[in-house]
């Protein structure tokens, strides 16, 4: 569920960057203030563990498929939310840099979806209340699954919101959500099972390591809730003037045929959600249309211009390739 640079508008990418960078700065300050020197190597090594564990698959019971650990929730359980966020952020950064998972502009969005949400929402609001200190093993396992599913569903929603707000992909939010949520429910279950398995293993082998969860203060929770609301608000503000939802007029929508012949299952519900979105009042339409035309690289279609454009495109490509060769020769 990595967001990619290619799907982000600079505004949304920038907002997510600011949100994640601010979280990172706050976490860095909190972790430094804890002045537990031993946290430095521990965080590093646990990051390496998550990195490695993400690549070990396991069979999901009752299905033919396999899943793997994401790690955000596990880290929050082991290290507390602030340190956990720094660790998962480092893992995502390395993946963005070396495996092109997501991309650099999208890193802010990815840190938010896969770091902030599990560490600062799912962990304190789901895991902790469900599994307070001294809980039974069954309870810990249950809490881990619920919190992991919650984190993944939130993350998937984040991806949808950011994509739709960016307006690069034509995917409308409704059907996109309807597609993403079931997939991430499954991924969340796998994540929860893996997290539970590891926490329970550790509780048995080294109870001293999981005995003392870091307390979460209510004040910081409130701050986070406000921050989350703010981010959501800003994103939806970017989303509204975009032409996306509007192009979803019934005449153009691919889903109309399916609406007339309702099917069961995902397809049917997909079409239904599509129809709902499409029926939303399109009061922004004329403005959006104008904006679209103004920004378009084909301002007024004119035969000569288009031909010149085509030749120019080819020539640009040729020049770039030539420049590449020239630069390669020079050294």
């Amino acid at each position: 569920m990595h967001m990619a640079d290619a799907l982000l508008s600079p505004a949304v990418g920038g907002v997510m960057w600011v949100a994640s960078a601010a979280t990172l700065a706050v976490c860095a300050r909190k972790v430094s203030a804890r002045s537990e020197d031993r946290l430095v190597p521990l965080m590093g090594v646990l990051g390496a563990f998550v990195f490695a564990a993400q690549m070990i698959n396991f069979a999901i019971p009752g299905t033919g498929s396999s899943g793997h650990l994401g790690g955000g929730l596990l880290l929050a359980i082991l290290l507390g939310p602030s340190a956990a966020f720094l660790v998962i952020a480092s893992v995502l950064t390395v993946q963005a840099l070396f495996f092109a998972d997501g991309g650099l502009l999208a890193l802010g969005a990815n840190l938010f979806n896969m770091g902030v949400l599990p560490c600062f929402v799912a962990y304190p609001l789901l895991y902790r209340p469900l599994a307070p200190a001294g809980s039974s093993r069954a309870r810990v396992g249950f809490a881990a699954v619920v919190a992991a599913v919650g984190a993944l569903l939130l993350g998937a929603t984040g991806v949808v919101l950011q994509t739709v707000a960016s307006g690069i992909s034509s995917l409308p939010s409704g059907p996109f959500l309807a597609l993403m949520l079931p997939i991430h429910l499954a991924i969340g279950l796998a994540e929860g099972l893996a997290t539970a398995a590891l926490v329970l293993f550790l509780a048995k082998a080294r109870p001293d390591l999981v005995a003392s969860p870091v307390p979460v203060r209510r004040r910081s929770l409130a701050g986070l809730a406000v921050a989350a609301a703010l981010v959501a608000g800003v994103l939806s503000w970017f989303a509204s003037p975009r032409p996306d939802g509007l192009e979803w007029s019934i005449a153009h929508a691919a889903g109309t045929a399916e609406l007339k012949a309702p099917e069961s299952g995902v397809h049917g519900s997909l079409a239904l959600v599509q129809a709902t979105t499409a029926l939303l009042p399109d009061y922004d339409m004329p403005a959006a249309k104008v904006a679209l035309e103004e920004e378009s690289p084909w301002p007024e279609v004119n035969a000569g211009k288009s031909f010149a454009g085509l030749v120019g495109a080819l020539a640009t490509l040729a020049l770039v390739v030539a420049a590449g060769f020239a630069l390669g020769r020079r050294r």
Partner: peptide, 20 residues
């Protein structure tokens, strides 16, 4: 970038090879 985070990146990088 906060030092804690760049140190974290370096540790992650170093021990990914060991733990991996």
């Amino acid at each position: 970038t906060p030092r804690v985070f760049t140190a974290q990146l370096l540790f992650l990088w170093r021990y990914t090879f060991v733990l991996g």
